[in-house]
Design a protein around this nucleic acid. Structure first.
Lengths: 349, 349
DNA sequence: ATGAAAGCGCTAACAG
DNA sequence: CTGTTAGCGCTTTCAT
């Protein structure tokens, strides 16, 4: 069937023209007589000629492809960003090479690997903190780099203000009269030092202090990311005598776990407990979960668009581009009502 | 900084060897004196030499990359498969080019595009039905092809038995005494003719018939995929006089919507309503949703592994490889109890 | 408008 | 063990 691959020279001689002309036809150059073009096209069709991407790439010095590094690619928030990236790259005609980074080893290997010449035309790093040394190494190769949901001085990047987000969530609960507010976040994994979580916690603390509430250490909990884990943390929290009246979970996935835990112990949301999440993924809407919405897909689209510009040599906003956050109030948060058990101590400063 | 790229010839002369030797060092050939190797490596290091992927690929006739076509990449079930694929390809040293296919136009464009010579070494099509003509066209190019969760005669593929899955779910509900069982599935979108849903429905019908129950047309509903839509369908169903006592949703996402709808109308699960889903994604566990588990990640891993074998020229199981399904019983299904409202008519044949 | 020829940077076969 | 050389298939001046 598929005989030896037919190459441009064969097309050329079969059409009675030079390879140059065939190449011009292939690339839509206007300077080819219409008749000639037709003839060449016909031959291409007939011979089943398919150009070699590798060869043209080598001649052109570009791959028309981009690398995207993401951590934990099964998390809805990451998928949301990735979807935005993939859509833009597709529209811009770039192939999108996706790498899932679960360990520091993988991160380092791929960071090095994509620095290879002519492997990709640019790189997008999503939600993975980079050391200065890593950034410098990439810069030294001249590989265009854009960060999404990660910070590193001097690199074009699109981020959100996680501290502000933490404050937004906490302020919402405070405004509803809550004072015993717990925080459930996740521990950064495998030595990659993820920071968004810590920042949201920082926002939580700041908001409490600003409201004159002393953050209670026993109400700040962290564990491996995941709904189930968050649920069991919540369970523990809710069974205390001085249980919180509200919980701020650092992601919707974790908030969903909290909701489930509440249900399990007969704690009614939002009557007995207010819960707020972060991200606004699909589940949040489905569960009626109040949350802090961040534009996930848009962050990906924006980052991808910036990278494309960088590759083309077009100007790009230097440094950080910050996307807006928004409180989405649904039915998981409500005003504090005095609970049926012993009145809760309010810790005020 | 990044001066003109240094190429292999410069490394060779700087190290006082021929380019052949440098190439051998690069590719870990054993037939290089250790001392020579060290010298070359040192020069490479010092000059900051980075090999050109494009050039070596052209010489080798391979790209070391694979295309993956997926539909609706934000759906958890798809992400699960994709994660499996990405993991295996990474381990095997292939770059994974991901395309999200939302329309028939995108599907056709990419199917054609990846047939280009030397663009990728192989292609993985996930959950997208292919016409015979499309399969033939790809076969004619000689591009290695593997299907995951899709069927097409003659192509190596990994699938599940959706009919059996539908029966498994329905039988579970029947065994619990339910007779008025509704089905909520989704309509195939944008002319791509997805079939899993129809097959699950077919399984539902077969199981009912086998149990002597006549499928009630008014209990079979389909709508665009998504939790919210499924929820409103369920709402409608539950407000009927002859509401179903159990609902089989063709995906966990839709089942989650059903759960939410039930809650909204004060219908208690599983006391007043049993609900079963399909897939077993993370949410299912979190919600205590009974479901039919299919090995999502594993299907991706297997498919990817098969493709790698195909590329290497190793033998691969011909035709279809069917993965097992499993009923996972959680807390959303229970034995039928007579409901408080007017006794439900049981339709039996 | 088009043909000829010089790369693009690497690998592998061949000769030593 | 190692140097030399001929491709890999396309793009692009440079003439004409």
């Amino acid at each position: 069937m598929a005989g030896r691959a037919v190459k441009i020279a064969e097309v050329a001689s079969a059409a009675g023209v030079g390879v140059g002309t065939v190449s011009r036809v292939l690339n839509g150059s206007p300077q080819v007589r219409d008749e000639t073009r037709k003839r060449v096209l016909a031959v291409i069709q007939q011979l089943g000629y398919r150009p070699s991407r590798l060869a043209s790439g080598l001649a052109l010095g570009a791959t028309r492809s981009v690398a995207v590094l993401v951590p934990f690619m099964t998390r809805p928030s990451v998928v949301g960003r990735l979807a935005g990236i993939v859509a833009v790259l597709d529209a811009e005609g770039f192939d999108c090479v996706v790498c899932n980074i679960e360990t520091a080893e993988q991160r380092d290997r791929h960071l090095r690997g994509f620095a290879d010449l002519h492997r990709v035309d640019g790189m997008l790093v999503v939600s993975i903190p980079l050391h200065q040394g890593q950034v410098d190494a990439i810069a030294a190769t001249g590989l265009p780099l854009v960060l999404v949901d990660a910070d590193a001085p001097g690199v074009p990047r699109v981020v959100i203000d996680n501290v502000a987000g933490g404050m937004l969530a906490t302020d919402h609960l405070l405004a509803l009269g809550h004072r015993r507010i717990a925080f459930i976040g996740d521990t950064s994994r495998r030595g990659m030092g993820f920071l968004s979580n810590a920042r949201r916690l920082e926002g939580y603390r700041r908001a409490l202090r600003a409201a004159g509430v002393t953050p209670a250490p026993e109400l700040v909990r962290r564990g491996p990311h995941g709904g189930a884990v968050a649920g069991s943390i919540a369970l523990d929290l809710l069974q205390r005598d001085d249980a919180p009246t509200a919980i701020f979970a650092a992601s919707d996935t974790q908030a969903a776990g909290v909701l489930q835990a509440a249900k399990k112990v007969g704690c009614r949301v939002p009557r007995d407990l207010s819960v707020i999440g972060f991200d606004d993924v699909e589940t949040a809407e489905l569960l009626g979960l109040s949350t802090i919405r961040q534009p996930l897909a848009r962050s990906g689209e924006l980052g991808a668009r910036m990278l494309c510009s960088l590759i083309r040599g077009d100007p790009v906003p230097a440094g950080r581009t910050t996307l807006p956050l928004e409180l989405v109030r649904r039915t998981s948060t409500a005003e504090l009502v005095t609970r049926s058990r012993a009145p809760t101590l309010v810790s005020a400063s």
